[in-house]
């Protein structure tokens, strides 16, 4: 247990020292948030609601980025540089290592949520009830787990370059098609249909519902859990195959 805690701590230090993490998961979402709520005139009738809505979009965008990009690429890196092999020689079991990584990553998600929320509060004075802050944050934290599963699937790739490229494409595609950058109601019909099957849309949608005072749609739960199971099974299967 002690070893897991130590490992968690160092995982977090590693994530924080990674310049890509700071850039993609903190700087970019906050910059986007500032631009689309202050500089670009979106012409929405209820400015306050838009500011809260877009804060949720950018928080989910931030957390999804760290889950897909950071988690997966780091796994590939550790594999290719022989670090994973070296870890196998220690009495620290690989499940514990993986658990510590997950925990470290989730703690970073929580930190990102808090930081982006604070940014929203400072930039636009977004005001929500305590419950709304709490539940939307909690939703984003828990619903980020399926994206960690995507990350671990990317983590089975052989080369850091491929993993980097693929995760970038997946990340940006999921973010734009899932309506994190702009609401899907302005999408053409066909794209709206696509969005409703994407995990990213449901990830953000849950948070949007919460700040409107609703409960996330049951379809959001189902689809996110579905994706989680599929990606976990796939990642476990591929990993098992690689080890034989």
């Amino acid at each position: 247990m002690n070893a897991i805690m130590t490992q968690c701590k160092f995982e977090m230090i590693r994530i924080f020292r990674n310049p890509y993490f700071v850039f993609w998961t903190l700087f970019m979402p906050i910059l986007f948030y500032f631009i689309f709520t202050n500089i670009v005139n979106t012409g929405v009738p209820d400015q306050g609601e838009w500011q809260a809505y877009y804060l949720m979009s950018m928080t989910t965008f931030s957390v999804m980025g760290s889950a897909i990009m950071n988690f997966g690429i780091r796994m590939v890196q550790e594999q290719t540089e022989g670090w994973s092999t070296f870890m196998k020689l220690t009495p620290f079991p690989s499940w514990a290592y993986f658990t510590a990584k997950m925990f470290g990553q989730l703690t970073m998600h929580l930190l990102s949520i808090i930081i982006v929320f604070i940014a929203g509060f400072l930039i636009n004075g977004v005001s929500l009830t305590i419950d709304q802050w709490l539940f939307s944050g909690l939703w984003i934290l828990i619903a980020s787990i399926p994206f960690l599963a995507i990350g671990s699937l990317i983590g089975t790739m052989k080369k850091v370059e491929t993993a980097g490229g693929v995760s970038n494409i997946i990340y940006l595609a999921l973010a734009s098609l899932g309506g994190m950058w702009m609401p899907i109601r302005i999408f053409p019909d066909f794209l709206q249909k696509v969005a409703e099957w994407l995990p990213s849309y449901h990830f953000a949608s849950g948070a949007w519902e919460i700040i409107l005072g609703n409960v996330p749609d049951w379809r959001s739960f189902l689809i996110l859990i579905g994706y989680l199971i599929v990606f976990m099974l796939l990642a476990t299967y591929i990993r098992g195959k690689q080890e034989n």
């Binding site: 230090i13 020292r17 670090w83 070296f86």
Partner: peptide
């Protein structure tokens, strides 16, 4: 081992501390 890989983003002391925690 022959290929001495190092974990990135950590300092020498931190890596040594991390390894000690495994045993």
């Amino acid at each position: 081992l022959q290929e001495t890989s190092v974990i990135d983003m950590l300092k020498v002391r931190e890596i040594m501390e991390m390894f000690r925690s495994y045993y």
